[in-house]
């Protein structure tokens, strides 16, 4: 643009002119960085199959989003990393030995049915990767079963052991080995120690607020403690519920997904806590060994309801005419 009168062209903007500098794009990138340690652990445990699953899932997610946006005649927004992030999160959830078409189908379904159908970025009512996960789990239960797909691995799946043989089997999983990821489960989701590192990184960088993860963990711990207190021989202790399976991954990475979680401190705490409670209940009474995905999906469904819990507005003005600023 040419200046009209020799003076520079200024930017005219609407207030507020200042911005805190944090954008969701940076946050998506930060979350991906937070996931890297867990991805590295996954590669250490499962070698190439893990690389294959994660890469394929990310690739499919970004491609799906791009194709959808093309048909929606919208600007391609792969550069905001959110599709990449959802692809990675999906890859974390499924078994490393999953056949390639399963990965592609799941990642595609996540992005297409979980996100683009509702309008893309920011509109998903459910946590995106869990949509694909749920469809796959219901449609191909055998292929999504960690014990069945991972027969070649020496590792075992503590949650199905717990379900089938009772809590005493958990004694063969020392806490340290659980933290180091010596357990079967989603490719990256069970790298518990690395997930905690990632979670701490996200909290420190203020990518997520502590409300949801801590409420989620508190929900899990409290519910598990109640059951454990009732009958320690029948139910697993809280620390196993926290460290086995995808609990912490769910707490830090899935439950905190922006569009599908409520806003405001109280709703966030309630939502996280409900998610945690549901998780243990599904693990104990449900037919699936790990309740994380379904617990979070159910909590997601309650989000609009939980969002209704809000303080009254300042001064409670309900008409625009009563008070208008000059």
């Amino acid at each position: 643009m040419k200046p009209l009168s020799g003076s520079p062209v200024f930017t005219v903007s609407v207030p507020p002119h200042a911005h805190c500098g944090r954008t969701f794009k940076q946050d998506a990138l930060g979350t991906i960085i937070a996931l890297l340690p867990a991805a590295a652990f996954a590669v250490w445990h499962y070698q190439m199959p893990a690389v294959r699953v994660l890469a394929l899932s990310c690739f499919t997610a970004v491609l799906t989003e791009t194709i959808c946006l093309y048909f929606m005649k919208r600007e391609i927004e792969a550069d905001n990393y959110t599709a990449l992030l959802y692809g990675l999160l999906f890859g974390f959830l499924i078994p490393p030995a999953a056949p390639w078409w399963l990965v592609v189908a799941g990642s595609f379904i996540s992005i297409f049915m979980g996100r683009m159908i509702f309008g893309g970025q920011g509109t998903n009512p459910l946590c995106v990767p869990l949509v694909g996960w749920a469809v796959l789990t219901v449609s191909w239960p055998d292929l999504m079963d960690f014990d069945m797909t991972m027969l070649a691995s020496e590792l075992t799946y503590p949650l199905s052991q717990l379900k089938n043989f009772g809590p005493e089997t958990l004694d063969e999983y020392p806490i340290k080995s659980l933290l180091l990821g010596f357990q079967l489960g989603g490719t990256g989701a069970v790298q518990t120690g690395a997930i905690v590192l990632g979670g701490i990184y996200m909290l420190a960088r203020k990518i997520i607020r502590p409300d949801i993860p801590f409420a989620f963990i508190a929900g899990v711990a409290a519910t598990a403690a109640i059951f454990y207190f009732i009958d320690p021989f029948e139910y697993a202790s809280p620390e196993y519920h926290l460290l086995c399976g995808a609990t912490l991954f769910g707490a830090f990475f899935l439950a905190t997904d922006g569009p599908s979680s409520p806003t405001g401190h109280t709703p966030m705490l309630i939502y996280g806590f409900i998610g945690g409670v549901l998780l243990v209940i599904i693990r104990i009474y449900g037919m699936y060994p790990d309740g994380v995905p379904f617990a979070i999906l159910l909590a997601n469904l309650m989000t609009p309801l939980i969002d209704k819990i809000k303080p009254g507005p300042f001064g409670g003005i309900t008409s625009i005419h009563v008070r208008s600023r000059s």
Binding site: G119, Q121, G122, R209, T263, G264
Partner: peptide, 15 residues
């Protein structure tokens, strides 16, 4: 579009 981070809700002085 809104990405649902909730920052605005938490910081709004008018609740």
């Amino acid at each position: 579009p809104c990405v649902g981070c909730g920052e605005c809700v938490i910081h709004c002085p008018a609740r």
